[in-house]
Nucleic acid binder design. Sequence first.
DNA 1: CAGTATCCAGTTGGATACTG
DNA 2: CAGTATCCAACTGGATACTG
Lengths: 231, 231
Amino acid sequence: MPSEYGQFCPVAKAMELLDERWTLLVVRELMLGSRHFNALRRGVPRMSPALLSKRLQTLARAGVVERWQEGNRVSYRLTDAGLELAPIVEAVGRWGVRWVPELGDRDLDPHLLLWDMHRNVDAEAVPDGRTAIGFEFPELPAQRCWWIVITGDGVDVCDVDPGFPVRVTVRSDLRTLTRVWRGDVDWATALRSGSLELLGEPQACRALPRWLALTDVARTPRPSRRPVVAV
Amino acid sequence: MPSEYGQFCPVAKAMELLDERWTLLVVRELMLGSRHFNALRRGVPRMSPALLSKRLQTLARAGVVERWQEGNRVSYRLTDAGLELAPIVEAVGRWGVRWVPELGDRDLDPHLLLWDMHRNVDAEAVPDGRTAIGFEFPELPAQRCWWIVITGDGVDVCDVDPGFPVRVTVRSDLRTLTRVWRGDVDWATALRSGSLELLGEPQACRALPRWLALTDVARTPRPSRRPVVAV
DNA sequence: CAGTATCCAGTTGGATACTG
DNA sequence: CAGTATCCAACTGGATACTG
């Protein structure tokens, strides 16, 4: 039950739904392919399950999301109306990357970063067979090591050593790798600065940026002038 | 001080600012040309002045709005970052007009309707000299009559008889004229249904739809299937 | 004109625990 | 797996009045 503006304006009517906190992030997760409750949670880990449930209900009532039950397995998917939110989400992403470039310490989250990267692995660019990429965040107090494992069957994130030989390891502080992934700095600049290292087969090190292909939003050109002050 | 999502995702960082209630409507008003505090209020009449002030401050801190003071006259205008919100506002408007077509009784407001129409008068299409258009909403308990007066100098809304001869009068229920203005129904359909009448010089009656040119959002094609259930 | 000040009722959502 | 239930602290914003 989103609150109302009392305006006939289409922007106002749309925002009655869309400006509720978390709503557009849930839509983003659905667009990125999450289908189940606990998969959605992985994309919005700071959201309580009660609130996620409530938002899904609101979105379903608004006709943006469809709830699908087969047996005791529940899925959510975007309706036509929901799919048409893509231009909004993309426009918001492009604006955000251009005009809100500052990240707070709270915005950095290795799990979320790996989760997001693993969804965008370019499987075509990766050698056939099995490829494991290691990630090390030496400054973290715990859970310093992560892996992304790519096989013909798909791409997985691990927070325990999968035991496979690692083709290349990325050693970086969390902020730098996050900024590289957002497209705020490029791989070459991060490498030169020394805050990011690539270790492993030289060929794999050179190929890595193609395996972890940046999204369209990350590739958005930045404003030439200095950015806006942080919110 | 918008609340934080704790995500590096550009969509999340942008929405920390943009999903605060009223924010995007204030931006819309600035895009439509309002520059002063009380002009902005006219576009968001249900917003308290305290809240409008707070939102303008937040937008200014975020670098989206610039506050300009000359003497004791204060203006607000969009910065480059603010101007680049246009694609978002437009995408939201197009989505809203397609997927949130139901209007509640609370969404209807003659003052807001006339205010919005007067901003979109196509001065080129209107005859030279002075043109007055009357509006009558017979079902309203009070303030049934309104006028839009177009001169070489500009376009004004009046809620008292300006005393000029009226070229054409629109007599309608408020909902129908609102729907026509939103592009939910066209003039011809509304006229045929009888819920809207045009009175006055026949030539002016035929020309009226060109004087009150629909916005791009209103001209957005609608989904062919039946619309979504109301929020 | 361009806001600020104050107050408070209502809502929101975070934390935590629990269930079929 | 897919949520509900409960509690409560914090925040939000509406109403109203006032100011330089």
